[in-house]
Each structure stands twice: as C-alpha cells, then as structure tokens.
Design a protein around this nucleic acid. Structure first.
Length: 893
RNA sequence: GGGAGUUUAGCUCAGCUGGUUCAGAGCAUCUGCCUUACAAGCAGAGGGUCACUGGUUCGAACCCAGUAACUCCCACCA
C-alpha cells in the first residue's frame, strides 16, 4: 500500500463502502446471536440530506457499528416516508412546470405522475446517507407506501374503526389553504407575528337610535354613542360575523343588552349576545363572533345557536357568501377591507399588535380554522398505556427531561384528525352508498357485502359504491413503521418480527416526540402488546454558531456533501459528534469537522511511523514499562468508553477515544518506544505495538469507519482473509488495569514536562543533552523509569543523590526533588524568588488544611477517608516545605 | 398564561452521592520549534468571583429560596 503523507479519503471511502456492500456486512438475518435493531426515522422522499440528518444518522451508525463489533446481530432498517402533503406539493409544482394542472387529471393519472416523481427523486437521500458511511441493511429498504405497508395502514384503520376508535364528524380543523387539506394540531406551528389590530365600528340598528341620540347630544363618549367598537386582527371576516358578544357584567355596555348591530359595509344585522367568556379588559370588551373562522367563536356559536357563515373557499379566497371582495385572497382582502372601512368611516383606529399565528408545518401557509367533515382517531385509550411505558421505564427517554413533556402531552391528548384532502397516500377505506351511509372495508367487494347487509338491498353493485376521496395522514402510516418494516401486520408471527421486535434504540429529533414516537408506542402496544423500542435517544437541534436553527431560508446550513468532500466522511462524523452534547442543541461550526479531519490524519501518520520500522530479531530490549503502561491505559479507557456509551454520551466516548489515541498512544507511547532514526526496533515491542494499533482501529471504527478499514487491511497486520474486516472485528475485552503503574507514569510524565519546561525557560534546544539527578523521598522507584525519562527528557543519566548538588536548577514533583546541573551560574536571586513564592502558597494551603483539622465539627462529621486525605495533605505540605527550606538555605550559601 | 431546561476559560462542553485536585477537557490564543510519522504537526504556557443575591453545612460549581438572561415545549384572549 502506498503511504501518502496525508490520508486521502475519497478513494478509501468508495472502495470500502462497496467492499462492505459486496460482502454483505450490513445484511442481517435472524440467527442465534442477540439482535440489536434500529429502524431509521424515515426521511421524507422529498428530502435532501441536511445537517439534522447528518447528526441523526451518524449517531445511529455509531451505535449500529459498535453493536456489530460487540457480537450482536446488528440490523439497521432504512427507508423513506411518503410525506403526503410535501410530496403532493412537489408533484403539483412539477406538473405546473409541464403546464399540467392537478384539476385536469384524474386521480390515477395524478398518482402515476407522483410515482414517477418518487422513482426519480425519492431515493436521493438514501444515496446521500451512503456517503456518510451508513451501514444500513439496504436489502430491507422500505417505503411507507410499499404494498405491504399500505395494506397495514388499511388494516389498522379497519381494526380501529371496529373498536370504535375511528369516527367521522364535522369539526373545526386546521385547514391548510395552500395544501388544500386538513392538518393535525401537531402539524400547526405557532409563531409570533407582528399584526395589526383593527378597531371597527358597528352601528347599532336604527330603531335604537332615538335613545342613543339623547346621549349623543351631550357627549361623544364611545360608550354611549350609537355604535360599538370591536377589535380584531382579521377584518376580512366581518362578513362572516354571527353576533357581537359582550360580558354581561360589563357595566359599560349595559345599554347594549338585547340590541342588534349592523355589520359595516354589508349592513347585515347581527345580535348582541352576552357571555362571560369575553374578557372585559382586553380590546374594547366587545368581541365579534365568527363561528366559521375561529375555534372559540365556533364553540360560542354552538352555545348560543348562531349560524355558521363560511366565507372562505378551500384555497383561502373569499366566496360569494362574503358578498363583497369575492375571489380575493384572504390577505389581499384584509388590506382592501381596511381601506373600505376607512372610507366608510367605520374604522376607528389601527394598532400594532403581536400575536400567535398558526402556520402549516409542511407548506408554511397560515392555517385557517375551518369547519369540515373529517375522520378522527380517538386517542385517550391508546395514550394511557403509552404513557405508562415511559413512566415505568420500559421505554427510556434520553435525556430524561423529555419525560415531563411527554407526560403532559399524553395527559392532554386530543383526538387525531387523520384524514387529508390529498391523493398521495393511503385512501381511506370507507365506501359511501347512494343514500349517504357508508361502510368500512378493505376492498370494494368486501364493501359491497357489507353494504348489502346494511341496506338489505341485494341489487346493489360495486358501481353504487364510492370510496372516500381522502387519504390518511402520513403519520398514520409511520406510526406502524417499527412493525411494518418487519411485515408484522400481514404476518404477525414471522421470523423477522419475532427476532427484531422490539427494536433497541430509536434515534430521533425531539420535535417529533409526539407526532411519531408517542404514536409508535401506542401502535406497538395495540398491535404487539409491547413497546416498539427500549430507548429513545433524542438528539439536539443543529444550530449555527450564532445559535440560529439551521434552515434553508436563512441559508446558514452547509451542504453535508460539501463538508464530506472537504473534510472526509470520517472527519465530518467526528465533527458532528464533537459538538453534540447529550440532549442539548449543538452549535455547529465547520471547524469541528476540520478537527475531525486532523484527527484522521494523526491516525494516518502514526500508522506511517510504525509502518516504517525495521525489526531486528536479535534485539531483546523490549520497552516493558511503555508496553505495560499503555496496556493498562488502554484497558482503563475501554471502561470509560463503555460507560459513556451505556449513558449515550457519545461525544464523551469519542473524546475519551480521541485523547487515548492522540495523547497517550501518539504523544507518549510511540515516543517512548520509537527507535532513533534508521535504527531497528526489537521484535516484542514491535509486535505489541501492532496489536495495540489494531485495537485502536477497533475502538475508532464506529466513529471513523473508512480510515480504520483502510488501515486494517495493510500488510503490517499480516495477511487478512477476505472477510477479516474492521467492520466485523470484535472489540477487545476488558483487561487488567494496573493503577499503581498508571499513577507512577503520571508522575514520570510530570518529571519529563518539567525538564522540557526548564529547557523552554532557558532557551535550551531539545537536542542538547542534559543531566538529571533526583533526591527521592517518595516510594516511586525511578530506576525502572530511567529509560523513559532519559529518552523523552533527553537526559544522559538519572543519578540518585542524597544532597542537592551545587549549581543546579531544581524542581519538585510530589515530594521528590530533581536537579539539572548547569555549568554556568544559576540566577540565585530568581531561583530564591521562585522558591519563596512556592513556599508562600504552601503555607497558605497548610493553614487552610490545619484549620479543617482543628475544627471539631469537621473531625466529628466528615467521613474517615476525608479526614485521612486531609492528614495526608498536611504531611505532604510539611514535607515539601522542609525541602523548600533546605533549598533556600543552599542558595543562600 | 403554564411547564421544562440552560447559565462553569474566548468558543463548545464535562464535572456522577457536597469532600483527595487553590476547578477539568477539546478547540482557539500566546511562546519556542520545519526535531526524518504528522506544520492538518511538536514542546511548553497563559486563561475561570462556576450568572447574581441570600440560605443550609465543618465544608457548596453541586443542596434550598429568590433574581436575571437565554432556549424549548404546551396553551383559543379577539
């Protein structure tokens, strides 16, 4: 293998990804091993890879790869979601470009175009995931509108209908005038918007005028004039007003009780009604009641038996019931009517006003409350068990803070509007009879049987039945995902579902906790009697470094594929995880990917070093200290990493790995054992080092699959068989940790650092050899570390002395005194000052320790080991002070 | 309006049951190095009133109360 100076990712990535595919390492079929399963949160078919996907799928791939390397049968099921509104919108847009209107097409024609679109563009996002290294079992790729999955949706609908949990009714729903469909409450995003509050005058009907004119003569108070004023943000809906409502206790308006008023511009008469619902101190205290276009007004209207006047078309334009501005869009109408009102003298004033407006999650259109006939799914009975799974810990949410939000939602859940006025999706299996009745059935044939039963009319034919035009909400198919991808509906006892279900971890965004996660738990319980996963890892939101959410409109999101191009897939994976604290949003910045790339390069170069060594079999001087130390250190890190993974602290697991590799392996271990240039290395050290390297590749692999696989196959590691790949290598078992040795080496590292420090301070080149002597007071046996200290400190000897030698710089490590002799004069004054300063600090430290030890309450309350530690601090400090004093005395002479 | 979370070095974050460590990491910064694996690097260093105010405790970044700022979720005040 050619060893270039830097890691060249492009070739390696293509090579190994296809190698893995070719050898079916991602493929999973049930066997004797323990399964580890993840189902991907299916991205929209309309989607292109964004940073959220990158984070999400990096995490899933790390988990899957690690499980695979722990001997589990790892199965990651990929797929896409048909995303009815979003896709239908795309298809409509595509047709428009070709000069075709949706209205001009029949349903089957439209669906043909939609499938054509899906086949062409629907797989893009999955192809992009491959660039990231995602080790999904692509043979299992599913689509929420695949035949089996769609059948499952229909069966589910029928099942729930039979249970009485699905019903049809006229309700106020969230209407998306752009998508021309109803959407669920969860699909409405509320945003604060700067609006205008229009104060509109409604004249009181003429036969009341005589009374009013008396007060008119005296005062012009708005409370006693012949009109009342209403504040509204939606003046275009006045034509749909059914009443004006005031609070019966509002003393300002007692004179309006039982009166009627004119709607401005159109002059229709509406009553003034009384209800305590109206807040007296908001606006004018007069509320216009528009039952067709506001949920509260609708309920108020129901209560007071008011008519419902719907003045809007499905696309948000005004209809003939508005009588004026017919055909105008609601927002254009709002502006125009303000002018008309102004001209008519009916506009009192306009104020700036901030309020919450609902937007469609999919189309971003302003949602219109609209009364319509829809299908609903009852939630309360399904919510209860789904809540319990989370509360009793059978389903763990990570981080736990989401339990509260989850509980709140589940305890206040409302029925789910599941019908959508779209064509792209599973069509509702309801069949209408000529008389308006309907039956629920899987096929038209089944429906006919039911219909005949229902009507007692044997002459009915399928021609008489008309299927409901609507499709079900996309989430009504994705909530079945963990079951349907294993064909658990058609064949509920098949080998796959029995083996893989329930899955292990679900990795998703908190935004869809209710949309999707909660409903999957409901479906899991209802159809399998078991939650669909054990752990839900909720990732943070990817933001830019200013903390803004990454979005297309802000243009602050980098293209993930560009990042991969620039920093390599491994680099980007590392970059994503480096800045993703568990459970918090991440402030993404390209520099993290750069750090990832640099790390890959570091690994590459460490490899180049080892690769370049010549071995001399005759040498028998293995660096036992270095080997034993690194082995212990590696085993210690393994435990830390395992622990981090167990708690889903992926970025910390990565950081622990990063430090182990960069600091401990490269900066310390390799430097300890590295032979001088062109000198050979002994056999044992060489073999052990290669084995360490192989283990390092293993623990790096989940994070950096490509570079590790690339290096894995180098001849340095001996001949590999075709199937001997890093991706399926088994992680090393935990081994012994010699803490004593680890501690001693930490001290030795300090000694070396101090030597380098002395060099730095005195501007001495690292190449210049120094001498070192030690007056050891601790239990550390420096003899065994002599080779290491000599090599890394570049000193020629480590002499043990009983007294301080003359003309030397000294430093103190723990209670051991080290000396570096210099022929030239030591600056005694500076040295004295340095020692004095240290002494001062130690005295202060000792004082505070003594204060504790003399405190009776401390001595009686603190745990024995704490007291012991304080006592040790005291003796250590005293010993150090003694040494300092001696040094100072020596300097004085 | 209700609820949750966050606030520790310039940045991003650890800090687990209050106690070994005058507070830990990575990046960035500064100083010195092109030392035959790596300048995408090496060696070293500096940098913190743990948001603020009280309280509990022998002892608080950590527990309690309050304050402030930011973030998110939920909610029909026109």
């Amino acid at each position: 293998m050619s060893i270039s100076k830097t890691y060249l990712p492009k070739e390696a990535e293509e090579k190994w990804y296809s190698y893995w595919l070719q050898h079916k390492f991602f493929r999973s079929v049930p066997d004797d091993r323990e399964p580890y399963t993840i189902v991907i949160p299916p991205p929209n078919v309309t989607g292109v890879l964004h940073m959220g996907h990158m984070l999400n799928n990096t995490i899933q791939d790390v988990l899957i790869r690690r499980a695979r390397m722990k001997g589990k049968n790892a199965c990651w099921v990929p797929g896409t979601d048909h995303a009815s509104i979003a896709t239908e919108a795309k298809v409509v847009a595509m047709l428009k470009e070709r000069g075709i209107g949706k209205k001009d097409l029949t349903r089957p024609e439209f669906l043909d175009y939609a499938w054509e679109w899906k086949e062409k563009y629907g797989g893009i996002i999955l192809e992009q995931l491959k660039k990231l290294g995602a080790s999904c079992d692509w043979d299992r790729t599913c689509f929420t509108m695949d035949e089996e999955l769609s059948a499952a949706v229909i069966d589910t609908f029928i099942h729930l209908y039979k249970k009485g949990w699905i019903y049809r009714g006229v309700r106020m729903v969230n209407w998306d005038p752009q998508g021309k469909t109803a959407v669920s409450d969860e699909e409405v995003i509320r945003k604060e918007v700067n609006q205008k509050l229009y104060y509109i005058k409604y004249n009181v009907v003429p036969d009341e005028l005589s009374m009013m004119s008396e007060s008119l003569a005296t005062h012009h108070s708005p409370l006693t004039t012949h009109y009342l004023t209403v504040a509204t943000t939606r003046p275009e809906t006045i034509m749909a007003d059914a009443a004006i409502c005031i609070n019966p206790n509002d003393e300002r308006y007692l004179h309006l009780h039982g009166k009627k008023v004119f709607i401005p511009l159109i002059g229709r008469e509406i009553p003034v009604i009384l209800d305590e619902y109206v807040t007296m101190d908001f606006g004018t205290g007069c509320l216009k009641v528009t039952p067709a276009h506001d949920l509260n007004d609708y309920e108020l209207g129901q209560k007071h038996k008011l008519p419902v006047i719907d003045i809007l078309n499905d696309d948000g334009t005004l209809n003939e019931k508005a009588t004026i501005l017919i055909g105008e869009d609601r927002f254009a109408a709002r502006k125009k009517i303000a002018v008309l009102l102004e001209e008519a003298g009916a506009l009192d004033k306009v104020e700036e006003y901030k309020s919450q407006v609902g937007f469609s999650e999919r189309t971003n259109a302003v949602i219109e409350p609209k009364l319509s006939m829809q299908w609903f799914c009852k939630m309360d009975e399904m919510a209860k068990p789904a809540l319990d799974y989370v509360l009793n810990g059978e389903v763990k949410l990570i981080p736990e803070k989401f339990i509260n939000t989850y509980r709140h939602w589940m305890e206040n859940v409302k029925d789910w509007c599941i019908s959508r006025q779209l064509w792209w999706g599973q069509q509702i299996p309801a069949w209408y009879l000529p008389n308006g009745e309907y039956v629920i059935a899987k096929t038209v044939e089944d429906a006919l049987v039911e219909a005949k039963k229902l009507t007692q009319n044997p002459s009915l034919t399928t021609q008489d039945l008309k299927q409901d035009e609507d499709v079900v909400d996309t989430w009504f198919s994705s909530w079945l995902w963990p079951i349907s991808v294993f064909d658990g509906f058609k064949d509920p006892d098949n080998a796959d579902i029995n083996y893989y279900y329930p899955t292990n971890d679900l990795v998703t965004a908190p935004e869809i906790l209710f949309f999707w996660v909660a409903r999957m738990i409901m479906a899991g319980h209802e159809f399998r009697g078991e939650a669909p996963f054990k752990n839900v890892y909720l990732t943070g939101i990817v933001r830019d470094k200013l903390g803004r959410k990454m979005s297309k409109s802000l243009g602050n999101s980098p293209d993930p594929l560009d990042l991969i191009e620039k920093f390599s897939a491994d680099g980007v994976r590392v970059g994503m995880l480096l800045c993703s604290p568990a459970g918090n949003d991440l402030m993404f910045d390209e520099s993290y990917c750069e750090q990832g790339r640099n790390f890959a390069n570091k690994v590459w170069n460490a490899f180049r070093l080892v690769k370049g060594w010549e071995v001399d079999d005759k040498l028998a001087n293995p660096n036992k200290i270095a080997i034993n130390w690194f082995e212990s250190r590696f085993n210690q890190a393994l435990v830390e990493i395992e622990d981090d993974f167990a708690q889903y602290r992926l970025s910390e697991a990565l950081m622990a790995t990063y430090r182990l590799v960069w600091d401990d392996f490269c900066a310390w271990y390799l430097e300890m054992i590295k032979p001088v240039y062109l000198q050979p290395i002994d056999c044992e050290t060489y073999i052990r080092t290669i084995s360490f390297f192989e283990n390092i590749l293993k623990i790096l692999h989940p994070f950096m699959p490509f570079i590790t696989e690339e290096l894995w196959h180098d001849e340095l590691f001996g001949g590999r068989t075709e199937k001997d790949c890093c991706i399926v290598a088994q992680l090393p078992d935990n081994g012994e940790v010699n803490t004593h040795l680890l501690n001693d080496v930490e001290t030795v590292k300090l000694v070396i650092t101090q030597i380098r420090n002395v060099r730095n301070g005195k501007q001495i080149s690292p190449k210049e050899i120094l001498s070192l002597s030690v007056k050891a007071n601790s239990a550390i046996n420096y003899d065994q570390f002599e080779p290491v200290i000599k090599k890394l400190g570049n000193v020629d000897s480590l002499t043990k002395v009983a007294d301080k030698p003359g003309g030397a710089i000294s430093f103190l490590i723990a209670t051991d005194e080290f000396f570096i002799p210099f022929s030239e004069n030591i600056d005694a004054k500076a040295e004295t000052e340095r020692l004095q300063k240290e002494k001062e600090y130690l005295n202060g430290f000792l004082k505070s320790v003594n204060a504790k030890l003399l405190n009776e309450r401390f001595m009686s309350n603190a745990k024995p080991e704490i007291i012991e530690a304080e006592l040790k601090k005291k003796t250590d400090a005293e010993a150090k002070l003694k040494i300092l004093d001696e040094s100072l005395a020596g300097l004085a002479t």
